[in-house]
C-alpha cells in the first residue's frame, strides 16, 4: 500500500519505531500459531475456526494502518508481512503443503509486481517469477504424489523452454518499442489502445 501522504511529515525515528512495532505484532501472531500447533489437538481446533486466515488478515490490516498513518517503511512492511504470513500458514503442516504455499506466495508476489510495475522489463521479470512459482508446484507434485513417474519434471522442462522463448521475444519487443517511442513506461504504451 503506497501512501505518499504522510511520508514527508514523519521523522525517520517514527518510521523505524512503526516498522519495529509491526515486526513485534507479526512475531506475536506467529507465536500464537506455534503455541496452538504444538499443543495437543490445537492444530485441528485452529483449522476449524480458520484462525490462521484471520491472523493473516489481521497482520495485513495492521501493516496497512502502520504504513498509512505512521509511514512505516514500505518494503520492510511487505517483507515482514509475507514472511510472517508464510510462517503462520506453514507451521505444523506437512512438507507438501509448505512447498505449495511457498509457490502460491511467490505467484501472488509476481502477480502484484506484474500489475504494479511501470517499467516493462520489470513486468517481464515478474512474469518469470510467476513461471518459477508454477515450476515449484510441478516439482512438488512430482516429488510427493508421483515419485516413480516423475511426470512433473517433464512439464517443468517444457516450462523452462517456454520461459526462455518468452524472455527472448518479450525483451526484443521492449527493445523495439523503446527504439520507436523512447520509453519503457507501461502507462505510455498506447499502440494497442482501441
Amino acid at each position: 500500500m503506497e501512501a505518499t501522504s504522510s511520508v514527508e511529515t514523519r521523522s525517520d525515528f517514527t518510521r523505524f519505531i512503526a516498522t519495529f512495532i509491526y515486526a513485534v505484532i507479526v512475531a506475536a501472531g506467529v507465536a500464537i500459531v506455534f503455541a496452538k500447533t504444538t499443543s495437543p489437538g490445537g492444530a485441528r481446533q485452529m483449522m476449524s475456526i480458520d484462525l490462521d486466515i484471520w491472523l493473516f488478515a489481521g497482520i495485513t490490516v495492521a501493516g496497512i494502518a502502520l504504513r498509512y498513518f505512521f509511514a512505516a517503511y514500505s518494503e520492510a512492511v511487505k517483507v515482514i508481512a509475507c514472511l510472517g504470513g508464510f510462517l503462520i500458514f506453514t507451521i505444523g503442516h506437512d512438507p507438501m503443503t509448505r512447498y505449495l504455499t511457498l509457490s502460491a506466495l511467490l505467484f501472488a508476489i509476481g502477480m502484484y509486481g506484474m500489475v504494479k510495475s511501470r517499467n516493462a522489463v520489470r513486468v517481464l521479470m515478474s512474469i518469470e517469477l510467476m513461471l518459477n512459482a508454477v515450476n515449484i508446484n510441478l516439482i512438488t507434485f512430482a516429488r510427493y504424489v508421483d515419485p516413480a513417474g516423475v511426470k512433473g519434471h517433464l512439464f517443468a522442462i517444457f516450462i523452462l523452454t517456454v520461459a526462455a522463448a518468452e524472455a527472448a521475444v518479450g525483451l526484443a519487443i521492449v527493445l523495439s518499442i523503446y527504439r520507436n517511442l523512447a520509453t519503457v513506461d507501461m502507462d505510455r504504451f498506447n499502440l494497442l489502445r482501441w
Partner: peptide, 24 residues
C-alpha cells in the same frame, strides 16, 4: 493490485490446506 494478489494467495492457500492429497 495488492488486494487482488492478497485474495489470490489466500484463496489458493485455503484450497491447498483443505485438500487431502494422496501422498506416496
Amino acid at each position: 493490485p495488492g488486494l487482488v494478489a492478497w485474495i489470490a494467495f489466500v484463496t489458493v492457500y485455503m484450497a491447498i490446506r483443505s485438500e487431502h492429497w494422496e501422498q506416496s
